[in-house]
Every structure is written in C-alpha cells, then in structure tokens.
Design a binder for these strands. Sequence first.
DNA 1: AATGAATGAGACTTCATTCAT
DNA 2: TATGAATGAAGTCTCATTCAT
Lengths: 200, 200, 200, 200
Amino acid sequence: MRARTFTESGRRAQIVRAAIEVIAEAGYLKASFSRIAKHAGLSSTGMISYHFAGKEDLLKACVTEIEEVTGAFMQPRIDAAVGHVAQLRAFVESNVELVGEHPAEIRALIDLVKNAGSQSGAVNGRLALFEEHFRTGHAAGAFGPLDARTTALALTAGLDAVVATAAANVPEPAELTRIGRELADLFVRATAPETTGEPE
Amino acid sequence: MRARTFTESGRRAQIVRAAIEVIAEAGYLKASFSRIAKHAGLSSTGMISYHFAGKEDLLKACVTEIEEVTGAFMQPRIDAAVGHVAQLRAFVESNVELVGEHPAEIRALIDLVKNAGSQSGAVNGRLALFEEHFRTGHAAGAFGPLDARTTALALTAGLDAVVATAAANVPEPAELTRIGRELADLFVRATAPETTGEPE
Amino acid sequence: MRARTFTESGRRAQIVRAAIEVIAEAGYLKASFSRIAKHAGLSSTGMISYHFAGKEDLLKACVTEIEEVTGAFMQPRIDAAVGHVAQLRAFVESNVELVGEHPAEIRALIDLVKNAGSQSGAVNGRLALFEEHFRTGHAAGAFGPLDARTTALALTAGLDAVVATAAANVPEPAELTRIGRELADLFVRATAPETTGEPE
Amino acid sequence: MRARTFTESGRRAQIVRAAIEVIAEAGYLKASFSRIAKHAGLSSTGMISYHFAGKEDLLKACVTEIEEVTGAFMQPRIDAAVGHVAQLRAFVESNVELVGEHPAEIRALIDLVKNAGSQSGAVNGRLALFEEHFRTGHAAGAFGPLDARTTALALTAGLDAVVATAAANVPEPAELTRIGRELADLFVRATAPETTGEPE
DNA sequence: AATGAATGAGACTTCATTCAT
DNA sequence: TATGAATGAAGTCTCATTCAT
C-alpha cells in the first residue's frame, strides 16, 4: 500500500487514456500492449507492465476511469429526478446524451463490458441496480408486476445497444435527445402498471 | 464457381460443427484454428485453411449453419402467428424456448454476433426485419408511433441478452417458457399503441 | 497417439541435437529457444514450439536422447562386469571414459541434471540404482555396512563432478583412463568391507 | 577506494540477507532483483543496482557473507582437530552439522555454487585446500597415494550433495550427526593408506 | 483432396540496468 | 544517499496462413 507519485499517477492516467482510445477505435481484440504503448507515445510495452500488474489490471483501471466520467455526467441528472419512473427516464436519457460528450469512453466501455464479460463488477452492478429499482418501484406502484431480473436484463442490454450504435456514429445533439426520449418512452411503457391509477 | 463434392461438403460441415462447439465451450476468443482442428480430430490447421478462405469465412459459415438450425425451429412458430403483435410474441417466445433445444448453437451465435460485430449480415438482417415489422405494424394499428429503428435496436438487443443469460445456464423448460412469455409481454407493452382500440 | 513422420522425426532430432550443443556450450541458463533455433538453422522459435509442447518437453527429449547415447556406451561395459565391486568400477570407469566419446552430451546432461533438478527421473533413477546396489552388495559381502543412501548420494555426486570437470576440458584418452581408474579405486576403498575376507 | 558509510554498509547487508533468503526459498533462477527488492522491503530495484555493481557483484557478496557464517561455525572445529585425518573428519562432520544451524544459508550457497559455476573463487578455494590437504597428508602418511585433484573434486562434490539433500529437508540433530559421521567414515576409508602402519 | 511442415508476426511478461531528480 | 521512472532486449508461446508434396 504505497502512495502514488505524481509522475506515476500521470503515467497511469496517460496509459489508461491511450488504452481507452485504442479500444474505442480498434476494438477490444486489437487493444494489445504494443498498440496502446504506441498510441501513448511510449517506447516499449514494458512501460505498461511496469505501471500495471497485467492486462487485466489495466482494463480494470479503464473501466474505473470511464465509470467516473460517466457517473459524473449521469448521477446528478438521476439524483435530480423524483420517483421511480422519472429516475428510470433520467438514467436512459442521460446515458444516451452522454454519447455526445464522451463517445470514445462509451464505445470503449461497451466493448469492455462485452468482452471482459461477467468478470467485471460494472455490468453486474448496474444490472442489480436496475433489478432492485424495478422491485421497489413495483412496491411503490410505479411499475407493473414485472419479472425484475428479466426486465433489468432486457432493458439494460437494449439501452447499451442504442447507446453503442449512437456512439459508433455520433448524431446531432438534438437527434440524440430525441432518441433518448424515445427510448425512455419505450421503457416506461414496457414497465408501466396495467391499471392507470395514480402512481407515486 | 465449382460445385462442391460430397467429401468437401462433409469436411466443411465437420469443421463448422467443431467450430461451433468450440465457440460455445471456450468462447470466441479462444476459438483458434488449432483448437478447432483438435476438436474436429484433424491433425493440422492446414485442413481448415484449405476448406475456408480464412477465419472470417469459417465464422460466416458457422453463422449460416446456426441460422438454419434456429430458423427451422422458429420460423414455423412465427408463421403460425397471425398479426403483428402475435408474430412479435412468437418470435420472442420461440427464441427463448430455442435455448432449451440448442444451447450450444445459441451460445456460439451470441458470441459470434458480439465479436464479429456489425460486419455480419445476420445481425443487421434481423434488425432490418424488426424495423420493418414495427413500421408496417404501426400502419396496421398494432403498434404505437415508434421510432422503428431505435425500438428494433433496443428490443433485439434485449432479447439477445435474455437468451444469452438463459443459454449460459439453461433452466427448466417451464421456467424457459415463463421467461419467454414475460419478455414477450414486456415487448408488447412497450410497443402497444397508446389508445386501446381494436388493433388488427 | 499419432505416428511421427520421417520429416518430423528428423526435425525433432535436429532440434534436440542443437539444444544439446547449445546447453553444452553456453549452459542451461542461456539455452533459450532463440539461441537453439539459431544454432539449428531455423528461422524462428515458433518452429520449436511447433515440434515440442514447451521448453520442458524439449529438455526432456534432450535428456532421453543423451541417456540413450550414454547407455549404449556404458551398459555393455557394466553388464560385462561380474560382481558388485566390479560393476561399480565398470560404471565409474566407463562413465569417465565416456567423456572422450561424447563430451558435449556429458556437459549438457550434467547441466540439465543440475538445473532441471529433482523433476527429472534420470537423477533419481541412478541414485536409486546405486542405493540398491550398495544394499544388495553389502548382503553379498562386497561392501561394508554402509548407509546406502548417503553413500549413493556422495558417490554419484563425486562421479558427476569428476566427469563434469573432465568434460569441460577433455584430456587425452590415457589420462581419462587413469582418472577413471583412480576414481574407481577411491570408491571401492570407500565402500570396502572392513575385514578383508573373500568377497563374492 | 572510498570507505563505506554506516548506512551503506547497513543497506548492503540488508540486501545481501534478502538475496540469500530468496535464493534459499525460491532458488537461484528466480532470484531476480525485483524479487530480492520486494523481500528486502525496498520499493525499487534501482536501490540494488545502486549498491552493487551488478548481479554478479551481489551474488559474490552473498557468497562472502555465507562463507563468513559457515566459517565461524566450522573453522574452530577444524582447528581443534589434530592430524590430517581428524581434520578431514572435522570438516565433513561440522559441514553436515552446520545444516542444522543455517539451513537457509547452506541452501543458498549450494545453489550459488551450482549456478555461478567455476567463476566463483569460493569453490576453487575449497577445492585447492582439499587438494593440498591430501598432498601433505600423503606425505605425512595419513593418506594413500591419491590423485589429489580427482580425490578433492569427488569428495567435495559428494559432501555438497549430502549437505544439499539434508538442507532441503532438515532432519533431527541426531540424524544429522549420524549422517556426518557416516560420510566422514566413507571419506576416511576412501583416502586411507593401504598398509596400516602408524599414521602420524 | 489432403497433409504436415514451415513461417513470421505478434502476444504478454520479466529482466538488469540507467538516469534524472 | 536514495528513488521511482524508463528502457529495450529477451523470454516463451500462439496465431493464421502458405506451400510443397
């Protein structure tokens, strides 16, 4: 448990940034140490091994970094929303809008999630969050009697797919906003309680 | 454009089958020619290169093969359904049930689709199909005024995710049926027209 | 369990020979795949990996090869000797004389044994052989009441050291013969029964 | 030729101690600067390179350190013995008993001697000592008409092997004493003059 | 139609050493 | 005196592909 030097933090950050960009541009499969080193302007792959315990360690650092960036954008918007339905909407819409701000990070994250698979705590974390949200939301009358797990699975995957497609070819901000609203509408309809009472 | 001899067809089929099994068991990343050759009982990878133009060619053949298998299961069920909503439901339910019949093929296909990415005609084919389905369905009053593209994207991805999860750890047939129905419900609600009139 | 082609056997033998020579000249530590490949006139280290499962596999093949060579030289001489003492003498003398015939193999084997350590069955095999020889020899009145294990350990190591030194700078045949006889005398004296009766 | 400050001496000693322990535990091959630095609680390998001219220098320092420790144990016992035979016996027995006192140092030394090879002055020093001892001992009538060099070579190697085996799995003190005596007997018999006169 | 051999690039990792601070 | 950063070579191994037979 050693404190990190300024230089080390800087190098680590530089390498992580390079890795994210490489993954975004060339894909997870092509994100080799050589490619990342070249992209980062490093003379050798040994440098990366020096700063990271291994490939897994580097990729974990990438995920963490991206999650910080995306969290900083999305979390305030989600927190500002009141009620389960509004929060679901805020999550979806801010996630789609995020594409306009950090397309590379988004592309990389989605590729990481796809390939790193279930190892990463990131995916399962969000999945569990959604699941719990649908459960408590149903109790509060915001959602119908859903199979929370299946619903969470389907909607997070659907969200990812839309976001990934948008990130691959970033549209105008207005179009992005429209897509986000459209998708949120879709999800809200999908999860709405059958009888239209006075939810929350 | 030379006709294929029987032997050649046999060898190709044998290799494709081995490749599918390897992908299902070890994942796309580990599906190297050596591994596939070993699984197929071939003594060298040269055999594979001889029968397929390259790795991409082999993978494409795998996708085609799997699609035939899955199509044979799903298509009759979809054709038997009348109306846009019922067809959507049939697609979803039969796809989930398919997991019980061909888990390996499903696992492989999903891995292929994830990694082969947007190159594959398969994904885009289904996507276009869904898109068109939502468009014509709206015109027929079966679906609401959806953004067909976004909806198709989200729902196919959501379906894949549920199927992939089920395939990774195949549940009882009854549970599979329940999940399929649950998911179909979700999708039908999501795409339903707002005013409950007399759709189709 | 596939039969080996002529070509494959040839290549394997060629690589093993190169490996033995490299180990003899540069030592176990420096015997890298690149060095061996270069010595064998191969264009890449991949070739070695193609024919051998790994470094361990190659080294094992080297040991086997060397044991065949040395066995072919020593075994007849040992078998020709009658009685425990004469056999011990034959072993020692033929082992030392062997240096004149196959210095490289001897150098390599000793380095392999030193570094591969107790993994190899070779060392322990010979050790057990000596141990058993001293035990049965004692029962037959040829040797004194020795601690068979300690004796076997000390004498095999002593033999190796003398052989290794000779192999490092091969002397004239006559001198080699003299050293072998001297060493055999030493060992025979060391293991002789205290009372000089009529052994065997 | 600059005198060493106290701190420098301390650091050097610390590193040497760590190196010895690493070699004893993990073996010569695994004793990399990183591993040694980690074991010594140093944060970088640079520290080692700073204090030692190179790897060889460090290893030489290890050998020197170990020889001091072993010398302190063995030398008094050897000096206390009177006559060539008794001294040979004292050397062997104290060396084997030493295993009970400093197993790590012994393990490390043996690994160093094996791998550092003939470069080290240590081995050749002891070898020359033995050789001279046998020569003068013969003149004094204590030993037979031996080939001093060959005998020295064989016996030192035999001693090392027994010691190494004991060090790898340290036995009870009594057993250690027994092994030492057994080995000394072996060596005394091996070197005894043929006619039993009045040696010394 | 098939095969085994060969290729060369590239993967990740570890190493001993140097150097500026 | 000490340190962390950087280097570049070398390590073993796997890969998809080509080619002569």
